[in-house]
Design a protein around this nucleic acid. Structure first.
Length: 352
DNA sequence: AAGGCGGGGGA
DNA sequence: TCCCCAGCCTT
């Protein structure tokens, strides 16, 4: 191999970052790191990876844990289906493969939460199998290198990108090559500030030679943000607090929060109190309003959350509870996985 | 093919 | 503000 790819590999050997999951062959740890890094920056996932390895050194340890404990360890990282799928896949590996990580691409790809990218990454890095690992970095690098104008978020674009990645994959050390392309995308071929002057493959790069790096990759793109107004009812009785498990397909599935009255437009504090809006969720006899929090604004990818917390104290315990809610001791709050937003409120107002 | 799913950081 | 991150799953 005597083309730009050799320059890339040389550059990679000389400049690669020292990451906790580098120079490791244990497929379990490779898998864990890849799932953590889905749509997540290295810096953000770093400590989570170390924590998971420490708490669950093997796939059997992970499978033996409760889902809530796994979610708790994942708390704050986002995209919680990753944690639920990780836990489910650990069970699969223990039951179907006797705790030994499957070594075939199709078997890896069939695990919950493992798509084409992750399966390719595990197969090539942990098992030295000849599969590409095409992530956002790779698509940005290749689209610039070859001047590809097919939108990368279209079915066609992904197909084209994958075929290209298969063609370019060297026969030897596919895992190293895959990581080299990704590393280039993460360190040099940046989205808005590409460092072309220090790029090992600039002389082969279409976008560099045409000075239009920022035109790539092409995307169809479209993100609309929905506003949601969450009026949380926080009910405390002595040393207990009422929480509930979030179940639906909505955000934070599997995590806990409080009974909530939700609207798609703002509702004033005064109206909320005057209309005793909490009765839409939980029927209370004589609640005592202890505190109304300021508005917490929480910006997510697809929705903007405006949350306010109404802290009520129940003196004479007559009420009808929402079906999914239950009492826990305030001191046990830390054992339940909660969204970032709820965690902020709890630390500030409940545990203070 | 399109939309949902978190949270953080950089421009 | 908007974009993007070592994507995946459901509809």
């Amino acid at each position: 191999m005597n083309d730009w790819r050799q320059n890339l590999l040389n550059w990679y050997e000389a400049n690669k970052r020292d990451l906790p999951w580098r120079n490791i062959k244990d497929p379990y740890k490779i898998w864990l790191s890849e799932v953590i890094l889905q749509q997540t920056r290295v810096n953000q996932g770093w400590e989570y990876y170390l924590r998971f390895i420490k708490n669950y050194p093997t796939v059997s340890d992970l499978a033996a844990a409760s889902e809530q404990d796994v979610l708790k360890l994942w708390q704050g990282l986002g995209y919680y289906s990753r944690a639920r799928n990780l836990h489910a896949a650990a069970h699969t590996i223990v039951k179907e493969y006797e705790g030994k990580f499957p070594a075939k691409f199709e078997s890896i790809r069939a695990l919950k939460g493992v798509g084409d990218y992750t399966a390719g990454a595990i197969a090539s890095i942990a098992f030295n199998l000849n599969y590409p690992a095409v992530d956002g970095n790779v698509m940005r690098v290749y689209s610039r290198l070859f001047g590809i104008t097919t939108a990368i978020d279209s079915t066609n674009g992904k197909k084209q990108m994958n075929e290209l990645a298969v063609e370019l994959l060297p026969a030897k050390n596919p895992g190293t090559y895959n990581q080299a392309v990704m590393e280039l995308g993460a360190m040099v071929c940046l989205p808005s500030n590409p460092q072309c002057e220090s790029c090992p493959v600039q002389q082969a790069c279409y976008a560099f030679l045409h000075k239009n790096m920022l035109d790539f990759p092409v995307k169809q793109g479209k993100t609309k943000v929905r506003n949601r107004y969450l009026n949380y009812i926080v009910i405390v009785q002595k040393d207990s607090i009422l929480i509930r498990l979030r179940k639906s397909k909505d955000i934070w599935h599997g995590l806990h929060d409080f009974p909530v009255v939700e609207t798609d437009r703002p509702i004033t504090q005064a109206k909320f109190l005057k209309d005793k809006k909490w009765n839409e969720v939980v029927l209370l006899r004589n609640p005592v309003l202890k505190d109304v929090s300021e508005e917490y604004v929480h910006l997510l990818s697809h929705q903007k959350l405006f949350a306010r917390f109404y802290l009520l104290e129940i003196v004479n315990g007559k009420m009808e509870l929402p079906a999914d809610s239950f009492w826990i001791k305030i001191n046990d709050l830390e054992n339940y996985a909660v969204p970032k937003l709820i965690d902020l409120y709890i630390r500030k107002k409940i545990l203070k």
